[in-house]
Design a protein around this nucleic acid. Structure first.
Lengths: 229, 229, 229, 229
DNA sequence: GATGAATGAGCATTCATTCAT
DNA sequence: CATGAATGAATGCTCATTCAT
């Protein structure tokens, strides 16, 4: 009955090999958690996927909860690697910024989501339910991501192609929210390329083409803010 | 062999009383789930909170999962009751819309969140992790809420105080995302009134003061929109 | 949700009415136990079948175990009524006995089993598993039934158309066993009329055409027993 | 949250050891079920009897119902091992058959029952009540046992020392029934050796000394059946 | 008398974790 | 180091029984 399945028998001795094993386990755990959810998944599932004994798991991680932190790192790392990278070049025109943000958005929805649609669900919904600490961690992560956008906006304000009185922090958070809403939508059901593009355009425009409120109906009032800047 | 002794019997006999009891249990479950999380919570906790036998729970709900649906209804109902209500009056000017949206945002962050900060966490993070069905349900709910905003925007477009080419659907979704980001921030840590106000202002402005992009590079060319407006 | 189903509202006041109610409950219990088995059946099932409150059950019977005794009585009573009755007339010839036994057997397999195939399963397999007492009771019942046959055989011996040295008790028990085997077979799967007849004939013949063993191999030896009789 | 401390770990690693453990558990389950009955018995009882954790039980069997099949195998195996074995030698005379059957009967009542009087009760009354499948299984088993006798009888018919028109199938079933009746009697109360012997003799004689019905007693009457039919 | 709301003992089952091999 | 056998805390759920109405 109990197939006396042989372990892999690849004994990691060197520090490097140990690290490799840890990574394997994390990846396996990611897969298992993504497929079945944290609670429904068992350590045995993870071990089975690697064809290692489940006792072995505990040689690399303290407990089930412990590995989750690493899985989050792994997942978030994957996102950031694909999204954040390079083009930190400061935009010099509104259109450059528009292009930057559009690229960013496209990447998130394409690179990330298409590569593994379970990822956003995993991070946003699976992990956040485990305990307060992980929730805070993920929320902090999102905040951090938002913080990455701030400089771009600040640069726009400084260079004058974004409205001078823009609350950069708030706008960055709003932008993050727009991304989240997009992810929510994708978790819910897939979107066509056109839908994605239009959504991204709309959001980017909300940032880039956001002008100071005109003195409303009031006839000849000069824009007050331009003066103050 | 079996010695089930007691049977005190405080009997909700009338349909009304039964409904009351159901509500009590739902509220208790809400509290327990909000405090300990769905998985950590036991039926016994819910029963204990009401000082009823845990068998009684099963007279009113089929099982642990069953009540969760009702808890969601209860939670969502609370939100909607506070937020959605009346002011369906169509805005006739940009400033009216701005006011409408600002009020809406303020309500969400104040009425809802201040009344029970656990509510958004419960709905967004606790419930969504249980199973695919509930996840879809919550996401659908958010979509629905977004759909409620569309008419407001569409009205603005029709009346000419929102940019003519606005993708109303996308903008509504973006707006929803901004709300979510705000809730995320509030789940993470409380915000000062000023912070909230500034965030709301920023978001509302992103919608209301979003103009059609100028012909890009073209130097000092007059904004075409200004002409059309 | 809980359809507040009204009780029958037929309040048994007179002793006769009370007895009628008891009988109703016993019959309902018989049905329920026969359908679902004693353990799988609940008091609620019995009550539901009669559309009475399940508390009412306890006004007529002490507990679940208690009613089983009555159900057995009811079931056994049905059998006996159909099988045992009248023709106690003493057979005067082997053929008369043969006819008597054949009739008896036919009745058991036809009247009883055809009328309710669940009955033998109920008595033999359901009830006997409950506890030692009921097991003994059913076994005693079978013994009793066997005892009813003894006189018929004894009569045969006395009149000389059954072998003189027949162990009447043992034969009666054997005959009972043959009936039981038949019932087992019927519980297992239905039998054609022909199969039944052949089985009955075979069994009856084993009783009626059972002669004293000849002195074994010894050729023409006189039957010793005939001398002793 | 989870503090599953222990993990002593006496490890049946080899397939042989695993099988041994399985057998231990089956035996323990047999004892427990025989003593308390299936429903009254708990997995904990079985585990306690072996002084193992009750979680261990589930390493070897899927669930409570699962092991019952094995317990039946175990019980039936014990019976068959003691009863069925060897002497397949074909009888050449009626007396040899008589001896064969007598031996068989004696074995059943002595070897089997004396060794563990609970066994027949277990198989016939405990197991058959669990569910339809097990009931059918046991009944099928009995049928099979009956089928083992058929050849013996058929042989007798062929050799001419059993009546030529014997319905071998029916007779085998009847014989099985006689054995069952004997077991019933033994479950009810013990029998003296003499009682057993007389019962066996009577039954065996019913088979071996069963002759074709004479044309009845009626003096010069032609065989009435041929006439009347 | 009838009712059914309430009750909680009881139990099967899961699975993270330990540790002897 | 790796393993997986053993473990038992923990929990959802059922249902016979009681008793206030």
């Amino acid at each position: 009955m109990q197939t006396p399945k042989r372990g892999r028998g690849r004994p990691p001795n060197t520090p490097a090999a140990i690290e490799r094993r840890r990574t394997e386990i994390i990846e396996a755990a990611y897969e298992v958690f993504a497929d079945k959810g944290y609670h429904a998944a068992g350590i045995a599932d993870i071990a089975a996927r690697l064809e290692i004994g489940h006792g072995t798991f505990y040689r690399y991680f303290d407990n089930k909860r412990d590995i989750l932190d690493h899985v989050v790192d792994y997942g978030v790392g994957r996102v950031l690697a694909l999204v954040v990278p390079d083009d930190l070049a400061e935009a010099t025109t509104r259109e450059e910024l528009r292009a930057q943000l559009t690229t960013l958005g496209t990447r998130i929805f394409t690179e990330v989501v298409d590569r593994d649609p379970r990822l956003p669900r995993m991070i946003l919904f699976e992990v956040t339910a485990i305990d307060a600490e992980l929730l805070q961690r993920v929320l902090g992560l999102l905040e951090t991501v938002g913080a990455l956008v701030s400089p771009l906006l600040l640069n726009g304000v400084r260079r004058g192609f974004l409205r001078a009185d823009l609350d950069v922090e708030a706008a960055a958070r709003a932008l993050t929210g727009c991304v989240i809403a997009g992810l929510f939508a994708l978790v819910r059901k897939s979107m066509t390329t056109t839908e994605r593009e239009r959504y991204i355009d709309t959001v980017v425009s909300m940032i880039c083409d956001n002008v100071e409120p005109k003195p409303a109906q009031s006839p000849r009032g000069r824009a007050k803010k331009s003066a103050s800047s």
